[in-house]
Design a protein around this nucleic acid. Structure first.
Lengths: 200, 200
DNA sequence: AGAAGTTAAGTGGTCAGACCAGTGGCCGCT
DNA sequence: AGCGGCCACTGGTCTGACCACTTAACTTCT
């Protein structure tokens, strides 16, 4: 078949290569040049294939170092928004709402599962929206939730910039320390949800 | 940051371009050469960005013709991911938990936004888990939530089959009719969450 | 000998230019 | 009007070049 595209073929060949070599997270793949050489294709085709693998979360590229297998769990769902990213105000509203709802949900879940170590990690986080909430979502012990939230945040930050007053972080942390789900929720609703609903 | 990668930037620029031009499914995008020219980047960077958009199911390329917007909904990405899912127990647990949490959240949101028409649509739904909850998630008026839920369900149904006793649907519907968020939540937690937590 | 600074090789990231292989419209011929 | 061929344009691919960055080996100085 001359009709099948090289970069698709290459995608699957690299995938097969990974499986057969039994590459584990952290392992290095051959360089782009070597792959191109070995698979008898141009480097640009290799790169387009690697782009796909990267989007799927299977690999990670580091300039100057090489291409590496990513720890599992990192794949998928990065894109469900993909089918979504075009379009207008309606979708942006949905994006904001979804992100807020998920954050409140994660906050409650994290509160239930809070431990002293997690509390310490959150305390050490920058008092910045993204860093702070990332620790909170991580504290849910649910990697899928983290992935979804990261995607939402990624898209969100292309549209908005939000920052909270520092007392908000402190109040939230204290609520978490007391394992008070209601209080944490109240702080979040007061500082984040109301703020966002005013601005839109 | 000079370090941000061109093909990532290009990805977002093309995305923005699609938004601003209000391109609809079937519409043609500028040619790769014109995009490269207009965005002042190399054609290979444009191609790597287009590869991402293609994998996300946003666009479709036809050799000799051009690049076109694709009707969304058919995410080939989901099927692709299927072959990549490592069926670890950790991932399954996260999937179940996330789905349940999102459904409870959607149930509450739907309750807040319930109207008589939506109530009627839910009443007409099959008393089957997927159909019933789809109507509920639809009733949130949040398309993004629907998309996420559909993806989660898609994966979920590859792993489990769940069905509820018919009185569960009736009780939930009655709660929705009364716009009683607490009652709906209680029914969900009793019939769905407890059931699932026992089985795992 | 050990520490500090320098160099060189290798890697991903990007670009420009070339050619191939399809598509479709234009033009002239019959 | 209908046919056929030409040609401009499109995506697909390859090559070679250069940049930015990392690493490790090498030199140099103390």
């Amino acid at each position: 078949m001359t009709t099948s595209k090289v970069y698709i073929e290459t995608f699957w060949q690299i995938h097969r290569m990974i499986e057969e070599a039994g590459l584990q997270p952290g392992d290095r793949l051959p360089s782009e040049r070597e792959l191109a050489d070995r698979l008898r294709v141009g480097r640009s085709s290799v790169r387009e294939a690697l782009r796909a693998l990267e989007l799927l979360g299977l690999i990670e590229t580091r300039r100057g170092e090489g291409t590496f297998m990513k720890p599992f769990g990192d794949h998928q769902l990065i894109q469900l928004l993909g089918s979504f990213i075009l379009q207008g105000n309606r979708e942006k509203r949905d994006l904001i709402e979804t992100k807020l709802l998920m954050e409140r949900m994660c906050l409650q879940l994290a509160c239930k599962r809070m431990t002293d170590e997690k509390l310490e990690r959150i305390a050490q986080a920058d008092r910045m929206y993204h860093s702070f909430f990332r620790r909170i979502v991580e504290a849910t012990d649910n990697y899928l939730l983290l992935r979804i939230w990261l995607v939402l945040s990624d898209f969100f930050e292309h549209v908005y910039t939000v920052e909270l007053p520092s007392e908000c972080y402190e109040q939230m942390w204290k609520a978490l320390q007391k394992r008070s789900c209601e209080e944490a929720t109240a702080v979040y609703e007061q500082y984040v949800m109301q703020k966002m609903s005013k601005e839109n």
